[in-house]
Design a protein around this nucleic acid. Structure first.
Length: 281
DNA sequence: AATCGTACCTGGCTGC
DNA sequence: TGCAGCCAGGTACGAT
C-alpha cells in the first residue's frame, strides 16, 4: 500500500509509541509473512527479551533497531501497524492481524495486512548496508543523496519507458504508482517516454519533481486513498493535492484537457495528453 | 543481463 | 440479490 511518504509518516508516528519497549512475546499467525530459515517458533523466540531502540526507514522499508539485530518490515500493498496501550488491547484479535508483538508493559504492536503481501525478517546489526545493496536499492530522494549526474547516467542505460523504470527502486527509492504519476505530470513527461530518450531538460525537471513531490507529500502526512491511515488512525492530506492520480476524465488543472487513464506494465497510469508530451532529443 | 509476465492474497466495486 | 470479473500506495522470481 504505502509509498515513501506514507512509510515515513508511519515511522514518525510509531517511533515514540514503541521506543524502549521490551518484547515479552511474539505471535505469528500467517507464517509466510516472515522471511526466515529458522523454525517459526525459533524466530519468535529470537525476539523475546530484546528492546526496540529506534525505528528507522530506508526507502519503503521500516527498520526496527533492536538490542541484538534489526527487524526489517516491508508493508507492500496493505500492511499496517496498530499500537495498543495495555488498557486498550483488543480482547479478540482482528481478522487480518498476522503478527503481534507483546511488550513487557502489556502494550502491544499488531501487524495487520489484508492481502498478506508484506514481509518481515531479522538481520544482523552489521548487515544493514549489505542488505540494501543486495536489494539494489537506489538513493533516498533527497538533494544530499540523489545526484542528477548519476541519475542521468543510469537512465541512459535503461531500455524501458520511464514509468516502469521509476517504479524499480534502483534509480531512486520511494516512488510507487501514485507518486510516479504525480511526478511525471509535474515534470511534463509522458509515462511511455523511453528512459534513454529523455532530454537533459526533462531529466532536470524529473529529478527536481521527484524530490519536490515526495518531500511535500511527506510533510502532508502522505496520501490517504482507499485504506491508508497513520499510526494514530488519522488520514494524510496529500490526496487533496493529487493532480492526475485517480482523476481520469476530469480536467487537467493546468490546461483543462481530460486526464486519461491507460495501462502501463499492468499498472493504472494517469496523465494529461496535452501537458505530458514526447520531446525531441 | 535486462525485461516481462506472473504469483502472492483479499475485498470492494461495477455491470449484467 | 448474486456473482463473475476487474481493480487496488509492491516486490520477487522464473522464463525469455
Amino acid at each position: 500500500m504505502p509509498e515513501l511518504p506514507e512509510v515515513e509518516t508511519i515511522r514518525q508516528g510509531l517511533e515514540p509509541l514503541i521506543k524502549e519497549k521490551a518484547i515479552a512475546l511474539v505471535d505469528v499467525s500467517w507464517p509466510r509473512i516472515i522471511n526466515t530459515e529458522l523454525d517459526l517458533s525459533d524466530w519468535q523466540n529470537a525476539l523475546v527479551g530484546q528492546t526496540i531502540h529506534s525505528l528507522l526507514r530506508r526507502g519503503k522499508y521500516l527498520i526496527f533497531q533492536l538490542s541484538n539485530c534489526y527487524l526489517i518490515s516491508h508493508l507492500r500493498m496493505e500492511g499496517k501497524y496498530f499500537f495498543y496501550p495495555a488498557s486498550e488491547v483488543p480482547l479478540v484479535k482482528e481478522k487480518h492481524t498476522h503478527v503481534r508483538f507483546i511488550f513487557k508493559d502489556h502494550s502491544e504492536l499488531h501487524y495487520h495486512d489484508v492481502r498478506k503481501f508484506g514481509r518481515m525478517e531479522l538481520i544482523g546489526l552489521e548487515d544493514l548496508t549489505s542488505y540494501f545493496q543486495l536489494k539494489k536499492l537506489g538513493p533516498e530522494p533527497t538533494t544530499e543523496s540523489f545526484k542528477i549526474n548519476n541519475f542521468a547516467e543510469k537512465l541512459s542505460r535503461i531500455k524501458k519507458s520511464i514509468k516502469p523504470a521509476l517504479l524499480d527502486q534502483y534509480l531512486v527509492t520511494g516512488l510507487g504508482n501514485i507518486y510516479v504519476d504525480e511526478v511525471l505530470f509535474q515534470a511534463k513527461i509522458h509515462p511511455l517516454t523511453s528512459s534513454q530518450q529523455l532530454t537533459s531538460s526533462q531529466i532536470k525537471r524529473l529529478h527536481h519533481a521527484i524530490i519536490d513531490v515526495l518531500s511535500r507529500a511527506s510533510e502532508a502526512g502522505g496520501s490517504s486513498i482507499r485504506t491508508y491511515r497513520n499510526a494514530y488512525g488519522k488520514e494524510g492530506t496529500f490526496q487533496q493535492h493529487h493532480q492526475v492520480y485517480g482523476k481520469e476524465n476530469q480536467p487537467c488543472p493546468i490546461c483543462g484537457t481530460s486526464i486519461e487513464k491507460i495501462s502501463v506494465g499492468q499498472r493504472g497510469t494517469h496523465f494529461c495528453p496535452n501537458c505530458q508530451i514526447f520531446e525531441e532529443k
